[in-house]
Each structure stands twice: as C-alpha cells, then as structure tokens.
Design a protein around this nucleic acid. Structure first.
Length: 371
DNA sequence: CCCTCGATCAC
DNA sequence: CCTCATATCGAGGG
C-alpha cells in the first residue's frame, strides 16, 4: 500500500459454474457425472438449434456454448449424454436466490448477468486480502449448502482483474490477485483473456504483433486509439496495466427488451413473417408492461439465409407501452425492410424495444396537452 | 445532440 | 443451416 493512500480496493467476481447445466443436474441428480447439454431448439427440425451451455463432462468431448446441437450429438454419440431444452424461468429463480445470498457479503453488490456478480469488500476489511479470501470460501460454502451450486471466485483490486481472476481456474475455483502480483499475473496472459477482447479484436491485435498482455502494454495509447478508436483504445491501454476504476454499482433497470425467433422456413413473403412478428411484438410488450415501462423506439431485426444481420428502427412521437402501436410499428418496419432488400430470404426475425423509461405516475402526458 | 444502422462482445 | 438477449461503440446523416 502506498503511503498516505486509501487501503487497496478489494473486489470479488463470483461466477456460477456451467450454470444452466448445473441447475439441470440438481433437478435430476441421476445426470451427474454424465455429459449434460442445455439446448436452444429453434423448432425448424428436430435437432436444429444451438448449445446454450453444457457441463464439463460434455466439454471434454469438445462441446461448448454456441455450437450446433447436431454437432454436439455427433461429438457425444459414443457417450451417454443428455440433451435438455433450456428452461430459463427456472434458472432465473435459482439465480435470484443465490444473488440474495451474495448481496449481504459486500459493501456494494452488482449483478452482472444471470450467473455472475461483483462484490466490493474494500471498506469492510481494510485492504486485507487474507480476509477477502476467507470470505470467498465462506461464500462458496454457503451457496453450495443452500443451493447445491458450485461457483468460481476471483479476488482482486478491481472489477477487471476480479473477472480475469475468476476466469483463470474453473470450475469450483478461487484465484486471488494481490496488488503486488498484478503485473506478473497479467503479462503472461493471452490478450483474449481481457474482457471485451473477442475474436475480432484479437485478430486485429495479432496483426499488430500482439499476442500477450505484456506485449499489449508496450503499445502507446495513441497507437491503440488510432487502431481501435479513442474509447476501446483507452480501455485496452488501461486493461494491459490492470487498471480499472469502475465502481461496483447496482445496475439500473435494463434499457432494452428484445425478442427474436426463427421462421419455419426462409421466406421473403411478408405474409409468412407477420404472424411470428406479432407474437414477438406481443411478448416483448408484455415484458415491457411487467416492468411498468414505456419505449420510445421500436426496431426490427432480420437475419437472412446467409446469416447476415439487418435492422430497422423508428422512434415514436411519444413513449408507449401499447401493443397495437408497437405491433404496427414492427409491421411497418419489416415491410420497409423487405422493400429495400428485395428478394432477401429471411431466416429469423426479432423485435427490440429501446429508449425505455419508467411509467410511474406520469402516464400519458398527451391527455393534458390536446383538449 | 439526436437518430439510424452495423459491428462486436458475451451469454 | 448457426439460439437468445443485452449493452456498447462508432460512423454517418441531419
């Protein structure tokens, strides 16, 4: 700790292991020890769709999130594997209970997804990483005892490093990065271990002869900003040094609601698209009203036969949560898209509602304006 | 500064 | 023949 400074921050990142698949193992304990694959079936043919997540037995056969179910079947044909359709509401329920366990452990708490959260411990333990490690063990025990779910925890001086730490040794792991170890720990890692560096950014970094974080740390800020834009460039520059000041903060309400689905067959006939589009608009609107919110902007997303992604959006004159308005806007947008991209074969369609705000109190200002 | 759209990420 | 949901950024137009 530098003299006359505040105690080092201590942040935990808790990541629930292979979460959906672990929930399914608990629902049916006979599955434990065998490959379990949780799937999103698209409904086109029997096994069309993708793998959402799978347990580690399945991973040992090369199965992972995102691959086609058909491919997972082939990889696992010699194994006694179970394929299960995703049951999101059930996982949400388990997640909520676990988040309720986690929250009291920190001075601040941030849910960062259905299966991950950050906890700020700084002010409660005065920079003591030993204590933080004990608390991490206690958290793991509590979640295991109360929900039979294992997790992996990263303990570090900020959110960025805590996330990298939890990613380092899964499942059922615990990794601590102390301030004095940051440079050595980070330098050795491949750049794709930095959150936000996916395959595209990784490729572009490789073109700059950068593969590991210590190599990234040798690039000037200006070089990174020129290559990746001022914001991303700056983030990469700081990340390479393990620097991150983002506070652990309760998340605001989500700022968008979206629904997407796959058509039975590719088509350019609007009449074959509208029924599904209306369902999606209805479902998204339901979610919106359940949250007691309104939206200002309606978008449609079209994914074509070649998997290219297109979108069209429209900002309304006034915020709404009325299904008829949202459905009509969606129809107008898809019609507009089909006209612009004639002969486009649509594979999937989606509806997105954004520009959300709380509907509390100030319902419909138009009542006071017109008249 | 707002809107639209595509891209990217990560789930 | 490749799911679903969300957030964020940057470019380009106005």
């Amino acid at each position: 700790m530098s003299p006359a400074s505040l105690p080092a921050r201590i942040v935990l990142h808790v990541d629930l292991d292979y979460f959906y698949a672990q929930c399914e193992e608990n629902l049916n304990p006979a599955l434990r020890g065998k490959p379990v694959v949780v799937c999103v079936y698209s409904g086109r043919t029997g096994d069309s769709g993708a793998v959402s997540t799978c347990n580690y037995q399945a991973r040992s056969y090369g199965v992972k999130a995102g691959i086609q179910i058909v491919r997972a079947r082939k990889l696992l044909e010699a194994a006694d594997a179970t394929f299960i359709p995703m049951n999101r509401p059930h996982y949400e329920e388990i997640s909520t209970r676990i988040m309720d366990i986690l929250e009291p452990f920190g001075n601040a708490f941030e849910k960062a997804g259905i299966d991950e959260a950050y906890l700020e411990l700084t002010s409660s333990i005065n920079g003591d990483f030993e204590k933080a490690e004990q608390i991490a063990h206690e958290i793991k025990q509590t979640i295991l005892k109360q929900e039979q779910i294992t997790c992996t925890i990263g303990v570090a001086p900020n959110k960025l490093l805590a996330k990298i730490a939890s990613d380092y040794n899964k499942p059922n792991g615990l990794t601590v990065i102390r301030p004095e170890d940051v440079k050595a720990f980070l330098g050795e890692l491949q750049v794709n271990r930095i959150p936000g560096v996916g395959s595209k950014t990784e490729q572009r970094l490789h073109q700059l002869k950068v593969e590991r974080v210590d190599q990234l740390a040798r690039l000037d800020l200006s070089v990174l900003q020129k290559a990746f834009g001022s914001n991303v460039g700056n983030c990469l520059y700081l990340a390479a040094r393990g620097e991150d000041e983002e506070p652990v903060k309760g998340r605001e309400q989500p700022t968008q609601v979206s629904r997407i689905a796959t058509l039975k067959k590719d088509t350019h006939e609007i009449s074959e698209i509208l029924p599904l589009l209306e369902e999606l608009a209805s479902s998204a609107t339901l979610k919106l009203t359940q949250r007691a919110m309104t939206c200002k902007t309606v978008s449609i997303i079209a994914i074509l036969g070649d998997l290219s992604i297109h979108s069209k959006s429209k900002t309304l004159e006034s915020p709404t949560s009325e299904e008829r308005i949202i459905a009509q806007a969606s129809k107008d947008l898809i019609a507009q898209f089909l006209k612009s991209a004639q002969s486009a074969l649509v594979r999937r369609v989606g509806v997105k509602l954004s520009g959300l705000s709380n509907r509390s109190g100030q319902t419909d200002i138009s009542r006071f304006i017109d008249q």
